[in-house]
Write a protein that binds this DNA or RNA. Sequence first.
DNA 1: CAGTGATCTTGCGCAGTCTGCAAAATTTCA
DNA 2: TGAAATTTTGCAGACTGCGCAAGATCACTG
Lengths: 205, 205
Amino acid sequence: MAEPTGLRERKKAATKAALSEAAFRLAVAKQGIEAVTADEIAAEAGVSTRTFHNYFPSKEAALLHDFHETTGQLLAGLRERAREQPIWDAFRDATIDMHFDQKFDIDAMRCREQLIHASPSLIKEQSGQFMELFAEAIDIVATATGTRTGDLYPRLLLGAALVTMKSSTEHWLADPGDRTLAETITEAFSYFERGITQPPTATAA
Amino acid sequence: MAEPTGLRERKKAATKAALSEAAFRLAVAKQGIEAVTADEIAAEAGVSTRTFHNYFPSKEAALLHDFHETTGQLLAGLRERAREQPIWDAFRDATIDMHFDQKFDIDAMRCREQLIHASPSLIKEQSGQFMELFAEAIDIVATATGTRTGDLYPRLLLGAALVTMKSSTEHWLADPGDRTLAETITEAFSYFERGITQPPTATAA
DNA sequence: CAGTGATCTTGCGCAGTCTGCAAAATTTCA
DNA sequence: TGAAATTTTGCAGACTGCGCAAGATCACTG
């Protein structure tokens, strides 16, 4: 039951990817996911509408499939790192190690960001996935900081970390300037080490 | 065009409130918003289904009506305060000034929190409203900190503030202990003044 | 207080989502 | 090759959410 890697598994993964890509293509072409129907996505991927809904509960979920997988990997990375370094560093390094800038096409990411930003339903879907991530990560944070899941501190820390992950990536994507993604992430996480309350002595642009 | 306060306005507000309350009542009775239909909510409030959708785009929105109004008021309070005190203090005090503990019934709030927590669709809806709040508040934060809307810093600050608002209120609601809501909020906001990275020297419980 | 314009409510239709179910089609493995 | 397991598919059904036009209600003026 480890990794069958049979034909079956590969086909399922391929179908899922095809559906996700179809959703993306159509959303770009029609300038918004609302203008795309589940029927169209299924047709574009060469499966029936019913099959589409076997893979994804909604077209929004299909479009954000990569994101969802990414959060899963990040969670795994975080779990590893949380055992051997401070939790804040673990978040930062796990985020950097995802290498979004190398794994995905930058223009496609920008495009996807625009689609999300312009669609209430996609914003909700993505936010929902973040909350899911929150729920899955809170135990890790509580354990790492010697607090309990219900305590205020781990929740604030985790919330801050997720906000930092999302904001830094988005910011770099919108305007990389002359910095690498890793640098931007590092900078963002460092804001919280001395307190976010007071603006940094205006070095940044 | 200031405040007509005519019969019409009052009736509309009453209908909206009635629908929202009906949604809440039914969701509680049926142990979850998913088990409630728009038809039932409309019937419970004594209007047609079509009218329900004139007021709210979804049953989730109806249930979170109070929350949505609250964020509007908080935004107004923040705008005021941001002119005369540091932005972080402005967030904290604006949050405290909402007096959730006095304006709403505590048990009802707990009940609502449970409903939200148990429902993916409600989590998404609420997250979406937070993102809306984010979009509406980012200009205030940028202005107050002498940065630009697209900069990283104001986004991190705002994100941290929203997380703090939400987490502190939820935490207090789940277990007030011997503290007032205002005290819990103050404590939560203070975490970020010295850096959230390192746990506080274990004074808290 | 009648009349007229503005606004709100309602029913109907329609496109679309999402799920359960059972019959094909396909893959796996002995 | 021949079951057994799994996937795909069509179909039916409940529900959402919105446009439209007709009817009901409210507001304002003379």
